[in-house]
Design a protein around this nucleic acid. Structure first.
Lengths: 215, 215
DNA sequence: TCCTTTTTGTTATTTAATTCACATGTTTTT
DNA sequence: AAAAACATGTGAATTAAATAACAAAAAGGA
């Protein structure tokens, strides 16, 4: 039922690279170029394109301009992409002002928090009280939220979001929340990534993971 | 040469779940429990354990206490895990005070920035000038860094880090930096995750990715 | 015009990851 | 004590993902 998340992630990277190439004045690109830039094999680039019916020209490669347009349609960039941020602690506020979002056409519609001291309804991106979240989501038809709240409140917020038209969440709390078919949760766990890196480093230094049976 | 990152990520999750179960007073756990909690199949849990030589008891499941200890050795949690944060803008400072790090035994040794206005050498986690980074890394034997700088300076910082004893980096800048064998880079790209979610949502709503040949 | 070069698009192959299935050792029940 | 119920551990089977390979189309000489 769900399309491979990995393929879509690669499409996003291809588009990103092409956007930058376009900015440099390039007009066409070969699967080899994209492969080098993204760090995959050229045949995988072509296969990914083939899955989505994206075609180029034998010998001539791909027209960057045209391919970006077609990719944007596939990736839904022709629609408005509004999100809200729940939890306006340091991480939440850092995300609210993150300029990577506007650059790719993602608009932060508002932030929400339970602490009255940090509310600011008049700001360009307002910080509203959490009690107003349900109406806001309904009225503005928000579908995606970032959850940047303490671990303790993450689950209960998720439960209430499930009763709204929110369909997907990026979760920064270190709790294991599971996606279901109609409610996607993508967790970002920085400490886990770091622990993973420490493991890879240590293993690379020659420490056997455990036994001799690991290739 | 590199062990599957995915397996290690699962080990980290298993350990996390068991840590919480231990806190609740549980003494043993079955592969089914861990599977449910982490969202994988029981046989995968057992196979993951088997790869690393982690054993339990037929019928009796796994002893939580003992398994956590053995996992911590495998995952390198018996060593000090110090990191530095490069770039102390909003995101960098949010990460500096993130309490998820101390909770899992990761210590932020210092932050670094080029802006003299935000330096603070006396703070519990000092913010030092970027010019001091090389000596600091050498002296404190730092192996892992978080990169939270603007896109424009990411690549040049990576290049200079490669000349130090840093072996792994978590990158928050939206640039595609590639790992090599002795220098790991793990990028966290929130906007990409969001775009991916938007795609999944839209596709789930019935929009065909492109043609009829996609299963 | 014809030959050579290049690069796509797709099928076949290989490799990797996950699930299945069941024999084996343990505990509980009767 | 024997039987029944369980849960692990692992090799076999399956599924999924990535690479390799190559025929066919386009472009550029000679």
């Amino acid at each position: 039922m769900k399309t491979q998340s990995a393929v879509v992630e690669r499409l996003l990277k291809y588009r990103d690279v092409m956007q930058k190439m376009k900015g440099l004045g390039f007009v066409r690109v070969f699967s080899d170029n994209l492969a080098d830039a993204v760090g995959v094999s050229p045949s995988l680039v072509r296969k990914d394109f083939s899955i989505f019916g994206l075609t180029g020209n034998k010998r001539g490669g791909y027209q960057i301009e045209e391919l970006i347009v077609r990719l944007n349609v596939i990736l839904g960039k022709d629609r408005k992409q509004k999100i809200i941020i729940i939890g306006c602690g340091k991480m939440g506020r850092a995300l609210m002002s993150y300029n990577g979002f506007p650059r790719v056409g993602i608009r932060v519609a508002a932030g929400f928090d339970s602490d009255p001291a940090i509310l600011d309804e008049a700001a360009p991106i307002p910080i509203l009280h959490i009690s107003k979240i349900k109406d806001f989501i309904t009225e503005k038809e928000i579908q995606v939220a970032i959850l940047a709240v303490p671990e303790s409140s993450a689950q209960s917020i998720i439960d209430s979001l499930k009763k709204t038209c929110i369909k997907g969440v990026i979760n920064f709390a270190p709790v294991s929340l599971r996606s279901s078919d109609n409610f996607l949760i993508q967790s970002i766990n920085v400490e886990q990534e770091i622990e993973n890196i420490f493991y890879q480093i240590h293993f690379a230094e020659g420490a056997t993971p455990v036994a001799e049976d690991v290739l």
